[in-house]
Computed example of a mutant assay.
Amino acid sequence: MEPFLGTEALSSGALTRGALRWNYRAVLPNVYLPRDETPTLEDRTIAAWLWTGRRGVVAGRAAAAIWGVTGIEAGTPIELIGPHARPHPGVIVREERIADDEIRTWQGLRVTSPARTALDLGRRLPTGLAVEHLDVLCRVACLTRDEVEQQLQRYRGVRGIPQARVALRLMDGGARCPEETRMRLLLYTNGVPRPSTGILVEDGGRVARIGMGWEGIKLGVSYFAPLEAGVGVAAGDLVHHEIVARTGWTEVGYVGMANAGLIARRVRSEVWRRRARRV
C-alpha cells in the first residue's frame, strides 16, 4: 500500500479516525502507512513528496533510484527541491533553482531529469560513490555527455560544480556493476590510461564481454562472480576465458576488491610494458 495523507482519507470517508489511529502510523506529519509495513525507498520517496503538499521535485539519490539506479539503501535521506519546509529527519528539502526542462513525471510525482539528477549526484556525493551511481544512471537512462555538459554550463559557478565536473568526466555507461566502476577508478588513480569499457570479442560466432581494456594492446580487466555464484556461472566463465584466449587477448580477472591495489599495479605495469613494446 502506498503512503497517503491522513486528512484526505478522513475527508473522503475511506477511513475513520479510529481506523487511522489503530491500523496506520505516521511516517511523516499527516502521511501514513500500514502500522506493520516497513517503508521501502519508494514508499519514503512518495511520503516525502506528499509531505511537501505535492509541490516538491524528487532529486538526488531518490531520483536516481526512480531512474533505475540500484543499490541505494532504503534508509537513504530523501532529497527534494521545493519551497522551504520545516526540517524533518530523513528528508532534505532544498530551495534552489530548477528549470522546467529539468523536471519529468513518474507515477504522478515530479522528479529531476536524468541529466539534472547526474549533476546533483556529482556535486553532492563523494566522487567514488557518485561515479558508481552515475555509471548506472548513464546506462539505464541513456544519458549522453552533451546533456550533462549542458547542465554544467547552466549551473557554472554554483557550489559543488568543480567536484561535479570531476565525477561526470569519469562517468562511463559501459560499467555493468559497482566492482567494475571501482576498479576503473582505482586504475585511474594509479596513472593507468583510461580504458574502453564493455569490449566485445568474437570467436566463430561466440561472443565474450571484457569489462574494460585497451584494444590496441589487447589487454583486458574483468570482474568475475565468486565461486559461490554456482556451477552455471563458473561454466560460463570457462567459456568466456576460452573465447578471450582464442582472440589473442590477455585478461586480468578479479573477484573482489581485497587485492584490488595489487591488481591495479600489475595492470599499470603491463599496460606500459606493452605500449613501450609497440613503439
Score class of each variant (00 low, 15 high):
Asn30Gln: 13
Ile92Asn: 05
Pro193Gly: 06
Pro162Ser: 15
Ala64Leu: 03
Arg145Thr: 12
Leu143Val: 04
Cys142His: 14
Pro39Asn: 08
Leu5Gln: 11
Gly157Glu: 10
Glu73Val: 10
Val136Ile: 00
His240Glu: 10
Thr144Ala: 04
Ile161Ala: 09
Val267Ala: 05
Glu242Trp: 11
Arg182Trp: 15
Gly90Trp: 08
Ala225Val: 03
Arg265Glu: 12
Thr144His: 05
Pro29Lys: 11
Gly53Val: 09
Gly232Glu: 15
Arg35Phe: 10
Asn23Thr: 02
Glu251Tyr: 03
Arg159Leu: 13
Arg209Ala: 04
Glu179Ser: 09
Asn30Gly: 07
Gln153Ala: 13
Ala229Gly: 08
Gly220Met: 05
Arg169Leu: 05
Arg209Cys: 12
Leu80Ile: 03
Val244Asn: 02
Glu242Gln: 15
Gly230Cys: 12
Arg277Thr: 07
Asp146Cys: 03
Arg266Thr: 15
Gly68Cys: 08
Asp43Phe: 08
Asp135Ala: 08
Ala74Trp: 11
Thr197Pro: 00
Ala229His: 14
Val239Gln: 08
Gly53Arg: 09
Glu42Val: 04
Tyr32Cys: 08
Arg268Thr: 09
Tyr254Val: 03
Gly173Phe: 04
Val221Gln: 06
Ala48Lys: 03
Phe4Glu: 04
Val140Gly: 03
Thr52Pro: 01
Arg97Pro: 00
Thr7Arg: 14
Gly191Thr: 07
Pro114Tyr: 06
Glu95Lys: 13
Pro195Ser: 11
Pro87Gly: 06
Pro89Lys: 06
Arg44Cys: 02
Glu132Cys: 08
Asp100Gln: 13
Asp135Met: 06
Arg275Trp: 13
Leu186Gly: 05
Pro39His: 09
Leu187Asn: 02
Thr144Glu: 07
Glu8Trp: 13
Gly128Ala: 13
Val91Asp: 02
Leu186Met: 14
Val58Gly: 03
Gly122Cys: 09
Thr45Ala: 05
Ala115Tyr: 07
Gly68Asn: 13
Asp237Gln: 15
Leu238Met: 15
